[in-house]
Computed example of a mutant assay.
Amino acid sequence: MSGEPGGAAGRTTGPSGGLRLAALRGGFGALDRVAPEVGARWAVRIWCTVPRGGGLRRDERPGEGERSTVAVAPGRDVVVETWGSGEPVYLVHGWGGWRGQLGAFVAPLVAQGRRVVAFDAPSHGESAPGFLGPRRSTALEMVDALKAVTAAHGTPAAVVAHSLGATVTTIAVTDGVAAGRLALLAPSAEVLSMTRTMARHLGYGERTRSRFDRRLEALARRPLRDFDLTAHDVTVPVLVVHDRQDKEVPHADGVRVAGTWSDGTLVTTEGLGHRRLLRDPGVVDVVTRFVAASDGAQGSSPAR
């Protein structure tokens, strides 16, 4: 499993984008009628293609840290960057992102006496391509990368994760990564709604979607429900930050995720969308205080 709604297939704004989407929908509609298996293979290829965009490459780091690599598999290394000393706090980017996007959290966490560890997932940022080749990856591969990085750099005192990175982090924790606290920014609640969104966007029906889902499960080597945050029992403290105007992952998903776990807390923001919350001073402050386990770090009121 990989991708997010509006990923590689969703970058269809403007006249040329509209024509591309119309062509995609026509092709998928025809294949759904006569060759749904072919359509499913095509859809999986699109799903696993890492998107590109200026906003995805924003660099909020206060300066360069200590750079190293960690092997996820033979010949497939991920780039890691660290700042400060103390208990490690990990920054996990989302689909199509990179470690620099979460750079606004570095200086405040270092000031709290933490060692900040950020990495680029396979086929993301400066890391080597994943097993599917350049510009392609899967969420399971991102999970394996997080496991490898934490094994090399120490048990997480906390993890700060964005979007698909929240799903990746949750799976890694339920698989045995012993994180002390989780701060999940704009998390998606469950993957099956994402596959339905993609089907509507690309114009294919249930014949293709059912085969698409089975192919994703085979690729992930685990049930798609494992990628639903609401299916897991997370017992560590969890802070969920989500914006009401998020156009990529609905605010309702954050509400569901925060309400699923016994020690979950929701912070709602206004007007920050899906990515601006990564550099908003109010969000950075509330997440830093949560990670430091300070009094008043959690709460259900807006962060700004």
Score class of each variant (00 low, 15 high):
residue 110 V to C: 07
residue 168 V to T: 14
residue 199 A to L: 08
residue 3 G to Q: 04
residue 180 G to S: 00
residue 10 G to R: 13
residue 35 A to P: 07
residue 174 T to E: 13
residue 54 G to Q: 13
residue 68 S to Q: 09
residue 265 T to P: 07
residue 277 L to Q: 06
residue 72 V to I: 12
residue 224 L to Y: 01
residue 138 T to N: 00
residue 288 T to D: 01
residue 284 V to E: 01
residue 114 R to E: 08
residue 107 A to E: 15
residue 1 M to L: 11
residue 30 A to Y: 06
residue 210 S to M: 11
residue 188 S to F: 13
residue 163 S to T: 01
residue 48 C to M: 15
residue 296 G to R: 08
residue 59 D to N: 04
residue 195 T to D: 05
residue 233 D to N: 04
residue 270 E to Q: 10
residue 283 V to T: 04
residue 280 D to W: 03
residue 169 T to G: 00
residue 57 R to S: 11
residue 31 L to K: 10
residue 37 E to W: 13
residue 165 G to R: 06
residue 47 W to T: 12
residue 52 R to A: 15
residue 224 L to D: 02
residue 139 A to M: 14
residue 237 P to D: 02
residue 224 L to I: 11
residue 212 F to P: 00
residue 61 R to H: 10
residue 68 S to T: 14
residue 284 V to C: 04
residue 136 R to Q: 06
residue 132 L to T: 04
residue 293 A to R: 14
residue 69 T to L: 07
residue 44 V to L: 15
residue 281 P to D: 00
residue 86 G to E: 07
residue 267 V to Q: 03
residue 73 A to V: 06
residue 261 W to F: 14
residue 46 I to E: 13
residue 231 A to D: 02
residue 271 G to T: 03
residue 185 L to S: 05
residue 289 R to P: 01
residue 124 H to A: 02
residue 300 S to H: 13
residue 45 R to Y: 14
residue 275 R to W: 06
residue 283 V to A: 03
residue 68 S to A: 15
residue 22 A to S: 07
residue 206 E to L: 12
residue 202 L to R: 11
residue 265 T to I: 03
residue 232 H to T: 00
residue 28 F to T: 12
residue 101 Q to E: 10
residue 280 D to L: 00
residue 56 L to Y: 04
residue 18 G to K: 09
residue 20 R to G: 09
residue 290 F to T: 02
residue 113 G to Q: 01
residue 182 L to F: 05
residue 122 P to K: 06
residue 32 D to L: 10
residue 235 T to H: 08
residue 6 G to T: 09
residue 285 D to S: 13
residue 185 L to R: 05
residue 299 G to F: 09
residue 294 S to P: 00
residue 292 A to S: 12
residue 293 A to I: 10
residue 114 R to V: 05
residue 264 G to N: 01
residue 2 S to H: 11
residue 229 L to A: 05
residue 5 P to N: 06
residue 24 L to D: 13
residue 40 A to D: 08
residue 210 S to A: 15
residue 65 G to V: 06
residue 115 R to C: 01
residue 122 P to M: 10
residue 113 G to A: 00
residue 109 L to M: 05
residue 155 T to V: 09
residue 155 T to M: 05
residue 172 A to H: 00
residue 207 R to K: 09
residue 132 L to R: 12
residue 183 A to M: 08
residue 29 G to F: 03
residue 121 A to E: 14
residue 227 F to I: 00
residue 142 M to Y: 12
residue 170 T to I: 02
residue 152 A to Y: 00
residue 120 D to V: 09
residue 33 R to H: 12
residue 293 A to T: 11
residue 207 R to N: 11
residue 187 P to M: 05
residue 275 R to E: 13
residue 267 V to R: 12
residue 166 A to T: 11
residue 71 A to T: 14
residue 201 H to V: 04
residue 146 L to P: 04
residue 74 P to V: 11
residue 236 V to D: 02
residue 248 E to V: 15
residue 197 T to K: 15
residue 46 I to S: 09
residue 37 E to Q: 13
residue 249 V to C: 04
residue 6 G to M: 11
residue 125 G to E: 04
residue 267 V to I: 12
residue 35 A to S: 10
residue 42 W to N: 08
residue 276 R to W: 03
residue 143 V to S: 01
residue 107 A to S: 12
residue 150 T to D: 02
residue 53 G to K: 08
residue 290 F to G: 03
residue 163 S to W: 01
residue 39 G to F: 07
residue 117 V to Y: 09
residue 74 P to F: 12
residue 80 V to E: 13
residue 7 G to C: 06
residue 11 R to M: 11
